[in-house]
Amino acid sequence: MSKITAGVTTSHVPAIGAALDLGKDKEPYWEAVFKGYEFSKKWIANEKPDVVFLVYNDHASAFSQEIIPTFAIGCAEEYAPADEGFGPRPVPVVKGHPEMASHIAQSVIQDDFDLTIVNKMDVDHGLTVPLSLMFGQPDQWPCKVIPLAVNVVQYPPPSGRRCYMLGKAIRKAIESYDDDLNVQVWGTGGMSHQLQGPRAGLINQEFDNDFLDRIVNDPDELSKMPHLDYVKKAGSEGIELVMWLIMRGALNDDVEQIHRFYHVPASNTAVGHLILNNR
């Protein structure tokens, strides 16, 4: 049977991808960000996950205003990097795991979470920047990826509670898959940031550090935090943090934190990153 061995959370700031793609990662501004992932790259090279179940949000790339799915699971063979207005990122095509993805969709839908099934989509920085942060710049990504896109573009996104409970259903699905695969669940986005309006640039370090503490040690209570608290305290785009709760719901109640990193700023955003051992 497959096993979820670890959870990873990370911000997915587009400028991080651009810095890497344009060779600016050794500049002091960006070096301070990438430094927080040095441990992670070594760690994951040893862990060698077969599949990463990657929770992210599409930033109006695969989904326009025509269709806005709250939760969409990718069941395709592969996903091309999206052209977000400046050409696609020069990163490898992302290989999917259609059999496991379909198994998860079937299991989770029968557990009352009505996922949208996506058989063709491009993936934007929300998905590819976390891969770059964890794996660097390989010729091919070293694992299969199952994307789960969460709507955080049009209000309301799903509640933190709903996300947390979905994580639990995803765990049940993954752990009932016959093949013996090493699976990691990643929750991406956040931390505090606001990209729009006169309040742009909002960063709340106190909120972020409390969130980092509680997602490890008190996720059940944390999952009850209402949307408005995220938006008020962590900025209009800080709401992305609900996606971390899907990752956390898929892990044991007690986990071991093996890495934690927090840094301000990357462009407009506070960067937060955790690795949680689920063994």
């Binding site: 909002l202 960063i203 506070a270």
Partner: peptide
């Protein structure tokens, strides 16, 4: 060909330099 930080700065009424410096100093305080 402009960045998210450039666009965000234009929305705040700050100059690019002022906005960049605010972010380097830890961002807009809550």
């Amino acid at each position: 060909g402009l960045s998210f930080q450039y666009a965000a700065a234009t929305m705040t009424g700050m100059s690019q330099e002022e906005y960049r410096d605010m972010m380097l100093a830890g961002g807009r305080k809550p």
